[in-house]
Structures are given as structure tokens and as C-alpha cells.
């Protein structure tokens, strides 16, 4: 019986923490009344880097600047701006670095293509090595 109680307690703590983590960052007073607008804001926020923490999105971050940017995104949505306009507004000020997923551009094409180039070099080397080994 004791074990069962312990199990329930631990599972409850785990579940509470799991869901608390998902909501981390966004505060109740920020949430928009319009559910669709709020969903859009969350999606955009998940793609925007917190410039202070850098490896977190502003959706997850509790940094003051992240909160300011979340509020700004919600304001822009309410003003009727589309996603592209909001992303442009932010990249004009903070550069592409603010986007967690770097765009495919002339200056970033190496970043996107190099892994594939290395993959093909690797495959080519393995095949050519195997061919030669078979011949021997």
C-alpha cells in the first residue's frame, strides 16, 4: 500500500513538472483572448531566439527582454500584421541570429549544404575503399 502511495506521489510530481515546463516563460497576463491569435503568437515565439539566453526560444525564456518581445509579437498580431511582417520586424533589428532556424540565403548556404557535402564525401570514400579492398 505504501509503495502504491509513493508511486502515485512521484508520478504526480513528474506530471506536474512536465506540464509546468511546457508553459514556462509565457505569463498568464500575456495570453491573448483570441485563441487563434494566441496560437500564432506561440508559434512565432517558439521560432525566436532569446538574445540573452541564446539557446532558448523567447517562448521558454523568463528573461525580461524575452517577455518584451513576446508582448511585442502579440501587439503586432492584434494590429493585423502577418507572420512574415513580424519576422521581418525582428530580423531588421536583431539580424537573422534572432531566428532559431537560420534562413537559406547566399551567406548561409554553406551552413545548410556542408553536412550533405560531407555525407557524400564520406559515402564516396567508403565505397571506393570497399571496392579496392575487394579487389585485393
Amino acid at each position: 500500500m505504501k509503495i502504491k502511495k509513493k508511486f502515485i506521489t512521484i508520478t504526480s510530481i513528474f506530471l506536474v513538472n512536465l506540464f509546468a515546463f511546457n508553459l514556462y516563460g509565457v505569463e498568464p497576463d500575456e495570453i491573448l483572448k483570441d485563441q487563434k491569435q494566441e496560437e500564432r503568437a506561440r508559434i512565432i515565439s517558439k521560432n525566436i531566439r532569446c538574445m540573452i539566453c541564446q539557446n532558448q526560444s523567447i517562448d521558454e525564456s523568463s528573461a525580461p527582454l524575452a517577455k518584451d518581445l513576446r508582448l511585442l509579437i502579440r501587439e503586432k498580431i492584434k494590429e493585423g500584421k502577418n507572420n512574415k511582417e513580424i519576422y521581418n520586424f525582428l530580423t531588421e533589428r536583431y539580424g537573422d541570429f534572432i531566428l532559431l532556424k537560420p534562413p537559406f540565403k547566399l551567406i548561409t548556404f554553406l551552413l545548410w549544404l556542408l553536412p550533405f557535402v560531407f555525407l557524400f564525401i564520406g559515402i564516396f570514400l567508403i565505397f571506393s575503399h570497399n571496392k579496392k579492398s575487394k579487389k585485393v
Binding site: 538574445m51 540573452i52 525580461p64 527582454l65 518584451d68 518581445l69 533589428r93
Partner: peptide
């Protein structure tokens, strides 16, 4: 007051 000018200047720290 609300940090909006800072955002316009791309300030993060």
C-alpha cells in the same frame, strides 16, 4: 519606460 526604444535599436544587454 517599456524598453521599446531599446528593441528598435536591437539592444539586448
Amino acid at each position: 519606460k517599456h524598453g521599446r526604444i531599446a528593441i528598435d535599436w536591437g539592444v539586448y544587454g
